[in-house]
């Protein structure tokens, strides 16, 4: 099988691998870079579990080939906070019980981060609109909306402090 060298910048680190041109970005992230925080739920672009950011915009890594992402800046959930120093959005999901099994969560977080950057004072309707492309089978969404609403408040007070 023909492979080629693919080099990707993920969360500021360069990862390279000899992979088939058809390798999905989701597989590169999980198998080559071994960043397993990005999850795969459907592999056909519907569920949003695999959502990452490419140059600051969310994309479905299961619908993107790894080679297409060369030269772009990729961000995954691992770029947010760490345990003990959670990102305010992660903090808000924890506080508001915005996750149960955690499988949709990384995608939700990446979407929430992008969304709150563009709309720092959203209404609940805005939030609902924003996450309408991400499926969650556990929560019924309400506490995810709560969490993103709360995250907006946390981020605002953070900016105020800074």
């Amino acid at each position: 099988m023909r492979t080629q060298k693919v080099e990707l910048t993920i969360n500021g680190t360069t990862y390279s691998g000899h992979v088939e041109p058809r390798m999905l970005l989701s597989d590169f992230i999980r198998q080559v870079a071994r960043l397993t925080g990005t999850h795969v739920g459907c592999e056909h672009g519907v569920c949003g579990a695999c959502t990452v950011q490419i140059d600051g915009k969310t994309a479905r890594s299961c619908l993107t080939f790894a080679v297409q992402a060369e030269g772009h800046d990729i961000r995954t959930v691992e770029a947010l906070g760490k345990q003990g120093a959670l990102h305010p959005i992660q903090e808000a999901f924890w506080e508001k019980h915005g996750l149960q099994c955690g499988y949709c969560t990384p995608g939700m977080l990446m979407r929430a981060e992008e969304f709150l950057a563009s709309n720092p004072t959203p209404s609940r309707e805005d939030i609902i609109e924003a996450i309408s492309g991400n499926l969650c089978r556990c929560t019924g969404y309400q506490t995810i909306v709560d969490a993103i609403e709360h995250a907006a408040t946390l981020l605002k007070s953070q900016t105020a402090e800074a």
Binding site: T38, E78, L86, T105
Partner: peptide, 10 residues
């Protein structure tokens, strides 16, 4: 359970 799930470490 949440901190590890939130940081992609589940």
């Amino acid at each position: 359970e949440d901190p590890r799930l939130l940081t992609g470490q589940g």
